[in-house]
């Protein structure tokens, strides 16, 4: 669904909503899912991202996103230097994700301490993005609503318990999406809510024995 400020905006540093703002958002989401700025990132650019990204500052924008900057942050211009200063190591390459992949796609492998996550996403125009894969799980994350990402045991009642905990706090769940590695193994859930889920609720969820990991991705156009 397209919202008003997807159209009247984004407020952004140029030159391209897909190749600069969308690229920045993909980097931003990657670090949000990782839980903070990575120490190291390997980023593969596919299609138009690889071919015309140079002139659009795509790499600079992704670097800024990985630093936690949003597309309207004028610090983006100096992101490469900032990354060097903060010790964020980034390696870019060209990848071929096949003909079915969106022309503006990127794959991320981000590392922070002992944490390592692989993310695939694309920039679909107007600065809007879709994250399509997290660690091999299929997702469809746009960031147009606050989203929590949870990896938990795939046992009966898991989804109900998580959404129940959220609903108990008076928060409205907009969408729930589940993908799993195999029956009875692990499931990755993306839960979009109307408002940000408070830290206390996230901590409560994280403390459950059947929850392996949980991340909070703030609404992107806020």
């Amino acid at each position: 669904m397209t919202t008003l400020f997807d159209i009247l905006g984004p407020r952004m540093v140029g030159p391209s909503s897909s190749h600069t703002a969308g690229a920045c958002r993909l980097g931003y989401v990657a670090q949000a899912i990782l839980g903070g700025m990575p120490d190291r990132a390997v980023v593969g650019l596919h299609g138009s991202f690889a071919m015309t990204g140079e002139g659009h500052g795509t790499r600079i924008a992704i670097t800024g996103g990985l630093l936690g900057h949003t597309p309207d942050d004028e610090r983006l211009r100096g992101a490469e230097r900032e990354a060097t200063e903060k010790g964020l190591e980034i390696e870019f390459s060209t990848v071929d994700l096949g003909d079915d992949a969106h022309p503006n796609s990127a794959v991320f492998e981000v590392v922070r301490g002992a944490e390592r996550i692989a993310i695939t996403g694309c920039s679909i125009g107007g600065g809007q993005i879709r994250v399509l894969e997290i660690d091999g799980f299929a997702v469809d994350l746009s960031g147009s609503l606050p989203t929590i990402v949870v990896v938990a045991d795939d046992v009966p009642g898991t989804v109900a318990r998580i959404t129940g905990l959220i609903a108990e706090r008076g928060l409205n769940v907009a969408t729930v999406r589940v993908d799993r590695t195999g029956r009875g193994e692990r499931a990755l859930m993306t839960i979009e809510t109307d408002e940000d889920v408070p830290v206390t609720v996230l901590e409560e969820l994280a403390a459950q024995s059947w929850v392996h990991w949980i991340r909070n991705v703030h609404r992107l156009n806020a």
Binding site: R11, G14, G57, D72, G126, G127
Partner: peptide, 15 residues
């Protein structure tokens, strides 16, 4: 302004 990596409103896109 957009081409100089300046601040713009992408309404509906930067281009």
């Amino acid at each position: 302004t957009n081409a100089r990596m300046g601040l713009i409103m992408a309404t509906p896109t930067a281009g």
